[in-house]
Structures are given as structure tokens and as C-alpha cells.
Design a protein around this nucleic acid. Structure first.
Ligand code: FES
Ligand code: FES
Lengths: 145, 145
DNA sequence: CATATTTAAGACATCAATGTCTTAAATATA
DNA sequence: TATATTTAAGACATTGATGTCTTAAATATG
């Protein structure tokens, strides 16, 4: 898999929070609600979202009417920020054959071509914001069911 | 990682076999020799290469002067064959967010864009042969050191 | 203040990928 | 035939990612 499972959960949760904030007008969304709709283990999602609050992409609030919210407006959060917070940037810097040094000076036989490809993938995550992927999302699937 | 570690080992071994056959004129190359030069565990590499002999990409021969060889000439073996034999084609068919069904009828918010990207990656493996990545390989790094 | 709701934190379990080791089978050659 | 070389096969160990569970802390509300 390109992204870790944890990372895909994180992105899907972020998109759902964005949608739910718009649809319901609430600010904080409980993790239990997200987990249920995304069909993800509640405790596991909690742990993943904690990383996003640590990295200031999300904010949490305890107690009744508490939950998780996005710290910024969805159009100001790029997908790459979430990917970076969970998986890091290694994918976009490393050799497709897993060699320890990937550089133009020390290329493997696919270096030149893979470098171009991974830049395109990076662009995918850098140009799309949470907002971009939330709009029109009635047609879109987030739930795994 | 895009490819599993096992898969990267398999491709690197295939490239080295190709090179060694040309350079030394031998047909069968011992796994121990490959493992040493690629800095991979001998027993582990043995197991991985067994999958490639099962899938008829390589052929093995026991005893003195035995080893592993490519069944076809390097220009007739595409990288995707090795990737498919070890990792399968799932990467090129599945959702970037890990959702169970990835299709135009059931798209996640990144489906359209990711579909284009994964086709390009697939092309990378479909258009390059072992031969393509073996030529001029004095400048190229396979060894992890 | 008592209770219910919610996240935080961390211990623990499970699983698949990776890696190690031992024994068996095949083959060449002296 | 005896020995050395080499792959085949499979048991076993290690590791990191994933998933579960329990307890603590914070907060709202009656
Ligand atoms: S060295 Fe392999 S992709 Fe850069
Ligand atoms: S459904 Fe997500 S990439 Fe196709």
C-alpha cells in the first residue's frame, strides 16, 4: 500500500469531520461518531487522531459535546499535511528499490523515472485540500461499506 | 513503501543475475553470491527467488556449478512480471485510501486523480525490461552499500 | 457535588512481513 | 561410492503495524 492504513484512516476522518461540521453546524465531532461511520475501531482512531492534534492539524475537547475539530478551515489544510503527520515524507524521498541512499549521484536503474513519478504523487497531496475533497462529496465514498 | 522489501530484493537480484550472466558468461549464478553482493540474507533471498522459479521467470539448478538463471533473455522480461509474482497487482487496482471497492461507480474523493497516477506507475514497470535496467549499469547502484 | 460524556494515555494482544536456522534432496566430481 | 556444493522446504524467531482494553483526566449539566 502506498499509504499506511493509519494514514488512510486519518485522511478519511479529516474529510468526514469537514463534511459534518458543514452539514450539522457543530464544531466538535465525537470520535465515536466518526469511527462508527467510517467503520474503524474507535480506540484505534482515537490514537491516530491524537497524532493530528499533536501536530496542530486538529483540536480536541473533552466532556459532553466534546470531540475533534479541524484547527483551520478546510481550504487551508492540504492532504500532504496529514500524510506527513502520520507516515512522514519518506515515500517521496526514497528509492523505489529500497536502497539506503537515493540521489542523482547514486542512482539505481529506475531512479530517474521514479523520481518524476513520485513528484507527481506528491503534487496530488500538495494541491488537494480537505476542502477540495469535501465538496460534492455526496457522490463520494468514505465509509468502507 | 510502494513495493514490499521482498519485491525490491527480487528485482535487484534479477538485475544482478542479468549483469553477471553477461559479464561472466556463466548461466547459473549461486544465490549465495547474489545475496552477498546485494547485502541481503542468503536464506531469505533463497525463499524469494523460489517464488520466481515457481512462476517460471527464473530457473534453478542444484549442486556444484548450480544456481539461478533467467528463463528468458533479459529484454523479454518486464519488471512488472517480477512485481506481480511477488507483490501481486493489488497496488494498481486499489483505492489510495484503502477502501474495499475502487471503481468509477464507487469513487472516493481522490479516485479520479489516483487512477491516472497508478496507471503511470504501472507503465513504469510495464515498459522497462530487465535488459533496459541492466545496460549501462556500471553507473548504477544495486547493492545497498 | 454527582453523574454522564468524552478524550488521553498506556498496557497488552494479534497479525503479517521479515529474517534465521536446520534438514533434506539433487548434482558434480574425484 | 564418498564428498562437496547447491537449492528446496519448512520450522521457528523477530519486528513493526494494527487493533483491543482499561483506567485516568477533563468537562458539562442536573
Ligand atoms: S536510487 Fe532508486 S529511486 Fe533513487
Ligand atoms: S475509490 Fe479511492 S482511489 Fe478508487
Amino acid at each position: 500500500m502506498l499509504l499506511s492504513k493509519s494514514c488512510t484512516y486519518a485522511v478519511r476522518a479529516a474529510l468526514l469531520i469537514s463534511k459534518k461540521k458543514i452539514d450539522s453546524g457543530r464544531n466538535y465531532i465525537p470520535v465515536s461518531e466518526l469511527a462508527k461511520e467510517l467503520d474503524i475501531s474507535f480506540h484505534f482512531l482515537t490514537k491516530i487522531l491524537q497524532k493530528l492534534t499533536e501536530s496542530k492539524i486538529m483540536n480536541s475537547f473533552r466532556g459532553p459535546n466534546g470531540g475533534i475539530t479541524l484547527t483551520r478551515s478546510p481550504e487551508k489544510i492540504k492532504i500532504i499535511e496529514i500524510v506527513d503527520a502520520i507516515d512522514g515524507m519518506k515515500l517521496f524521498e526514497s528509492c523505489i528499490f529500497g536502497l539506503p541512499t537515493c540521489s542523482d549521484d547514486h542512482p539505481c536503474p529506475l531512479h530517474k523515472q521514479w523520481k518524476l513519478q513520485r513528484i507527481e504523487i506528491l503534487k496530488l497531496f500538495k494541491t488537494n485540500t480537505i476542502h477540495d475533497l469535501t465538496i460534492n462529496d455526496d457522490e463520494f465514498n468514505l465509509s468502507g461499506k
